[in-house]
Amino acid sequence: MKKSIHLLCILAMCTTIACVPAKKLEDLQVKYDNLQSDFDEMKTMKEYGDNTLASLREQYAALESEYDQTKLDCQEQKVDFERTQASYEILNRNYKNLVNSNETTKNDLRYELERLDKQLDEKKRELFAKESSLQLKEKESAKLKTELDALEISLKEREKRVNELEAKLAAQEKSVKDLKDKLTTSLIGYKNSGISVVEKDGKIYVSLDNSLLFKSGKTDIDWKGKTALLKIAESLKDLEDFDIMVEGHTDNVPMKSASIQDNWDLSVLRATSVVRYMTTEGKMDAKKIIPSGRSKYIPINPAKTSDARAENRRIEIILTPKLDQLMDILK
């Protein structure tokens, strides 16, 4: 579970802000935020439900114990009542038999009879109170059991959805690893030619040095870069569960020419050239790939040296797992 939550955190940085397709990136960010919020809420509700279920079970057990004791008291009260009633009937018969006996005996029996009448009424009231209490506890017990059953069903459903979510996250993690391995294998011949494939924050970054793709200040792709891009396109053209972003990055040296206004322009045009080539010559679906320019603002190496600037001039193809299936689970 911790590993899944870690992957969710990793997915939090899945959507980057692009210069060209702002609407697409905003939609991805909203999807991710909703996913994170729903996941946390579901987890909190599950923990709250577990605590509530334990409390209700304790109440239910206490109520059952009290119910059993009340039922036992009621049965004992009934036996006592029947015993008193039998005594009353015996005395009543004796009273009638002795009604004509001496006055003293008659008075004593009358007094005893009245006492037993009062005692019988009191026993009746006690019995009625016990029966009423028993009926009330039966209703409370039935209500509590209904609530327990409903809560258990709800918790099982939430647990099922959490398990489904964890399975999807694990499957996405595997697909990221498999795709990275596939790209690494297909580009093994370019290992020392300015191409790297890394997995970071739940995404795959295919980084290509500008020296492989473009001449200085140009946006036309060099033949060496075209060969590498075709291999990448071959690995990605049938990809379904990833969003594909092509980002152009420049160094911090200001750029301006007749056709290029600044570093923003250069980074966007280079990313667009790569996307155009991968969709036309590489036969990738243009609906699945987005070009974006980041100018000089996300350097790999912040040092102010020629080597650092060369390292920062690059094209990054960023592959981000889609969140659609995860969001369907949380609906």
Rank of each mutant, 00 (worst) to 15 (best):
I5P: 03
H6Q: 14
H6T: 12
L7A: 11
I10P: 14
I10H: 15
A12G: 14
T16A: 07
C19K: 12
P21F: 00
E26P: 05
L28H: 11
L28R: 13
L28F: 10
Q29G: 05
Q29R: 09
V30E: 14
K31P: 07
D33S: 13
L35D: 04
Q36A: 15
Q36M: 14
E47P: 08
Y48C: 14
A54W: 06
A54Q: 13
S55E: 13
L56N: 14
Y60F: 09
Y60Q: 12
L63D: 04
E64K: 09
E64N: 13
E64S: 10
S65Y: 07
D68E: 14
D68S: 11
D73H: 10
D73S: 11
Q75V: 10
E76N: 15
T84R: 12
T84P: 11
L91S: 03
Y95Q: 10
V99R: 15
N100R: 09
N102W: 05
N102G: 06
T104L: 10
T105G: 04
K106I: 07
D108R: 12
L109H: 02
L109M: 07
E114N: 15
D117M: 08
D117L: 05
D117R: 11
K118F: 12
Q119I: 07
E126R: 12
E126H: 13
L127K: 09
S132Y: 10
S133H: 14
L134G: 06
Q135V: 13
L136S: 15
K137P: 07
K139T: 12
K139E: 15
E140V: 06
S141V: 06
A142G: 05
A142P: 06
K143V: 12
E147F: 08
E147V: 07
E147L: 08
D149S: 09
I153H: 11
S154F: 10
L155Q: 04
K156W: 05
E159G: 15
E164H: 08
E164Q: 13
L165I: 04
L169F: 02
L169V: 02
L169S: 01
K174I: 11
V176H: 03
K177F: 11
D178A: 10
D178H: 09
T184Q: 13
L187K: 01
I188K: 13
G189F: 05
G189R: 06
G189H: 08
G189D: 09
Y190W: 05
Y190G: 03
N192C: 04
N192G: 08
S193D: 12
V198L: 08
V198H: 07
K200W: 05
D201I: 03
D201M: 07
N210I: 02
S211K: 10
D220P: 06
K224C: 05
K226I: 03
I232D: 00
A233F: 02
A233V: 01
L239E: 07
D241W: 03
I244N: 00
D251E: 03
D251R: 02
N252D: 12
S257K: 02
Q261S: 12
Q261C: 06
N263W: 01
R270L: 00
A271I: 00
T272F: 04
T272Q: 07
V274I: 01
R276H: 13
R276F: 06
Y277F: 14
M278G: 00
T279K: 00
E281P: 04
G282E: 01
G282F: 01
K283P: 06
K287N: 09
I290V: 09
S292N: 03
Y297D: 05
P299Y: 00
I300W: 04
T305V: 01
N312C: 01
R314E: 00
I318Y: 01
L319T: 02
K322E: 03
M327W: 08
L330H: 04
